[in-house]
Simulated assay, not measured.
Amino acid sequence: MQDGTDELQDGTDELMVRARDGDGAAWARLVERYSGMLWAIARGHGLNDADAGDVVQTTWLRLVEGMDGLRVPAAVGGWLATTARHESASVACRRARDVPAEPAPAAAADRGPAEVTIAREHLGQVAAALQALPRRCQMLLRLVAQAACYAELAAALQIPLGSVGPTRARCLATLRRLIG
């Protein structure tokens, strides 16, 4: 596909109008045309077969729900791709939250007084260093501690998904320098 006119020429616009009007054959043709792309997007997010299948089904459901609001029916391919990416990121985030956390370090009761004192001093150093960071880094690192995935961080911070990792790395490097 070289430009937007190709989708108009390949009948996508007509298929969307017919599917919106209840034509089952048109709907089946849309599913046939775009399902492979949706599966590729979901699998590209590292989802297993079951989760990828859920993403594909949910994406089609979103189209059914929003079909009347689609301003440019011929652009359904892009709409489906964007929706599948968002759904895949959501599922990947939920799955990351479901992974059991590492066991907690030994409780304070299991440590001697010297170890507890050292741990508290270190915690105080980290807290002071966090306060010295720029506000954006403070917010990002707090969200990292709460959020399970970069998609949520990017949305919360209103930055591109690809910027989350490098920004996080810079903030952590600054934090390490401040802690000494």
Rank of each mutant, 00 (worst) to 15 (best):
R33T: 13
G66L: 03
T12N: 12
H122A: 05
L175V: 02
V64D: 05
G112L: 06
S163H: 10
T117H: 14
E152G: 07
G46H: 00
P73G: 08
D98T: 08
A106R: 07
G22V: 01
E65L: 13
Q138S: 02
M1W: 11
A19M: 09
G124S: 13
A19H: 02
C137R: 00
R20H: 09
A147G: 05
G11E: 04
D6I: 02
L140Y: 02
D51Q: 00
G46F: 01
R29Y: 12
D10K: 10
R71W: 09
V64Q: 13
D68L: 11
A89D: 10
D49N: 03
R120Y: 01
V55F: 02
L143P: 04
R85Q: 15
M37H: 09
E115M: 04
T83E: 12
T59P: 11
G112D: 11
A84T: 04
T82S: 14
T58K: 13
S88A: 01
R29E: 10
A119Q: 09
A40E: 11
R62N: 06
A129S: 05
D10Q: 15
G162R: 13
G24N: 13
R62P: 01
E65Q: 13
Y34Q: 02
G66V: 14
A151E: 01
A28C: 03
D3M: 06
L130Q: 12
A156N: 07
S88D: 03
L172R: 07
A127T: 08
L15W: 03
L140H: 00
P105M: 10
L153A: 04
A89W: 11
V31C: 02
G22K: 07
G180K: 12
R33V: 11
D51W: 05
G46A: 00
H45I: 00
D54Q: 06
L80Y: 06
E32P: 04
Q146D: 13
A148N: 01
R33D: 15
H45T: 02
G78W: 06
L61M: 04
T83I: 05
V55S: 00
L70Y: 09
L130D: 10
V91G: 04
A107G: 15
D51V: 01
G69D: 14
A114Q: 07
G24W: 10
D49M: 01
A101I: 11
T12V: 04
R33K: 15
A148G: 06
R136Q: 14
P73Y: 09
L141R: 03
Q125L: 14
E14T: 11
V55W: 03
R135Q: 13
V64A: 03
R136A: 13
A89Y: 00
I179K: 11
G4W: 15
P105C: 07
A75L: 02
P166L: 04
R95A: 14
G78N: 10
R29H: 09
A52E: 06
A40I: 03
G162D: 08
R135W: 10
A173L: 12
L141F: 11
R170W: 11
L38T: 07
A119Y: 05
L80Q: 02
L130W: 11
T174D: 15
G46K: 01
E102N: 02
R142L: 09
V126R: 08
A169L: 09
A74G: 08
I179H: 10
